[in-house]
Simulated assay, not measured.
Amino acid sequence: MQTAKDLIELCKDKHATVSSCESLTAGLFTSTLASIPGASAVLKGGFVTYFTEMKQVMAHVEKDLIDTFGVVSGECAKQMAQNTREITQSDYCVSFTGNAGPDAMEDKPAGCVFCAIASKDAVKVYHFQYQGLERNELRMQVVQDMINNLAEIIMKE
């Protein structure tokens, strides 16, 4: 398991920059990275797009895509990551969208989360179905999971 500090050090070693586009995590990923001394060398920034319209305004997610797939979807997570990476000119962008609960949203159960990591070459989409976690536990867990996934991608490239 990678820590936020491990990720910051890895990014420094690889001269890689990171940004984020967060919905259900509401800035927790960016805040977690920013809590590490030296994060300013790699963390370009992030968008918090909690409202659906903010995904369109800030991250340029297409309205038709949202109307077709919903905001709790891999398609939305992918476009959030791709577009925000381009807007911020970062090497990597991590996106987070989903349903932290307690009720279903867009016919998707509580705990259904989609994330994506965009690099210059590719976008990888992740789907998680968390069970039995309170909403803030879920938010912390998905941030940790994506720190691990981003570190794995950076190490491979």
Rank of each mutant, 00 (worst) to 15 (best):
H15I: 06
L7G: 02
T49D: 00
D6G: 01
S19V: 08
T52Y: 02
E53Y: 13
T49V: 15
A39V: 11
S23L: 04
A16N: 02
E22N: 07
K14H: 07
G45R: 05
K44A: 07
P37T: 09
S20F: 00
A16F: 01
C11K: 05
D13N: 14
G27D: 05
G27W: 07
A26F: 13
T3W: 07
G45T: 10
K14W: 11
Y50W: 11
K12S: 02
I8F: 01
P37D: 11
I36Y: 04
F29G: 06
A16T: 07
A41P: 00
D6Y: 08
C21L: 02
G38V: 09
A34W: 00
K5G: 01
E53C: 06
G27N: 11
A4N: 08
F47L: 14
T49C: 01
L28S: 06
T3P: 03
L10N: 10
S35W: 02
V18Y: 00
I36N: 13
M1V: 04
V18P: 06
G27V: 06
L10R: 08
P37C: 13
G45F: 10
D13A: 13
P37R: 10
G38F: 10
A34T: 15
L10H: 08
Y50Q: 11
A39I: 11
S31V: 12
S31F: 01
Y50H: 10
M1K: 10
K12P: 02
F47K: 02
L24S: 00
Q2V: 05
A26R: 13
F29T: 07
C21P: 12
E9W: 03
Y50C: 09
G45W: 07
I8N: 01
V18K: 01
E53A: 02
T17N: 03
V42P: 03
T32E: 08
S23T: 14
V42F: 00
M1I: 08
L33N: 04
S19Q: 09
D13M: 12
E22V: 05
L10M: 07
K44M: 05
T52G: 02
G46L: 12
K12Y: 01
S20C: 12
K14E: 06
T49P: 09
L7M: 04
K5S: 14
T3G: 09
C21K: 08
G27M: 12
K5R: 13
S19Y: 00
Y50N: 13
S20H: 06
L28D: 04
L33Y: 09
T32M: 06
I8L: 12
L43H: 06
G38N: 11
L33D: 09
Q2M: 11
F47S: 10
L28W: 07
D13R: 15
L7E: 00
T3A: 06
H15A: 12
M1S: 13
K12M: 09
A26P: 07
H15M: 10
C11F: 00
T17F: 00
G46C: 08
S35E: 15
G45Q: 09
C21W: 00
F29V: 12
S23C: 05
